[in-house]
């Protein structure tokens, strides 16, 4: 049998019917290799079926299960109990919902609303380059692709946006800004003017204070601030 830990979870709760908020404490006997989503499921199964949380793919590819654990935004599916204990050097974990959209219940936030930020940067190719003369795909060298392919890995989990010191005020946020950068660096995008308008608009990239929290918290290990820096420098 695997090692297990007795951990304590202090979870921020919110009831949309009564509009009451409170912190509820759960003690869980959890095997070391459980993910935090498994721990939440265990609480539902054994202690409290009303605790609401969110997930979908549960392997860090959809970005539905972002939560704040001991102050750090992360994906609940990615944190194993043993890693949580190791990383935070404690057996007590404070879980709060992400701060980038209204809370629906407990740990579930209205990510649909957060997505409005991403929609604003119009993530499609606004004006695609004319097709290759041979009629098939555009030619893009692996070298060119490599300059921005890391940024295409973003899953819009909004962990970076939750950590960002500017997002909550006047900034579109790191992930949305990076989505615009992808198209600025994509040789197929011809709508450069419009893209730059998005980049430098009032809530654009200059609202970023370069604290680099985004790069530190990104569960996909994307160096988000690097792409924002390229935007500020106009290097694309």
């Amino acid at each position: 049998m695997s090692t297990s830990y007795t951990i304590t979870l202090d979870i921020n709760r919110y009831d949309p019917d009564t509009k009451l908020s409170w912190v509820q404490t759960y003690r869980v006997e959890a095997s070391a290799i459980l993910r935090f989503v498994d721990v939440l499921r265990k609480i539902n199964d054994e202690q409290d079926p009303t605790l609401a949380w969110s997930s979908s793919c549960e392997h860090a590819q959809c970005g539905s299960c972002g939560v704040i654990v001991n102050g750090k935004p992360l994906l609940a599916c990615e944190l194993l109990v043993k890693d949580g204990v190791g990383q935070f050097k404690t057996h007590t974990f404070k879980l709060k919902p992400l701060t980038i959209a209204p809370v629906l219940r407990d740990l579930v936030v209205d990510l649909e609303k957060a997505y409005d930020r991403v929609h604003k940067v119009r993530p499609w190719l606004i004006k695609p380059a004319s097709p290759h003369p041979d009629g098939d795909e555009y030619r893009i060298s692996p070298k060119t692709l490599e300059t921005y392919s890391e940024a295409t890995r973003c899953i819009n989990c909004f962990c970076c946006a939750a950590a960002c010191i500017s997002t909550h005020h006047h900034f579109l946020g790191p992930n949305a800004s990076m989505a615009n950068m992808v198209r600025l660096m994509d040789p197929r995008e011809m709508a450069r003017g419009e893209r730059m308008d998005i980049l430098y608009r009032e809530d654009g990239v200059y609202r970023c204070h370069t604290a680099k929290a985004c790069s530190f918290v990104c569960p996909k290990d994307i160096d988000v601030s690097h792409f924002l820096a390229l935007g500020k420098e106009g290097r694309f």
């Binding site: 499609w124 190719l125 097709p131 098939d136 555009y138 030619r139 893009i140 060298s141 692709l145 994509d186």
Partner: peptide
């Protein structure tokens, strides 16, 4: 053509 970021060969295909 609608913007997917396929991996490429050395020739860019």
């Amino acid at each position: 053509r609608h913007g997917m970021h396929f991996s490429r060969t050395e020739e860019g295909r």
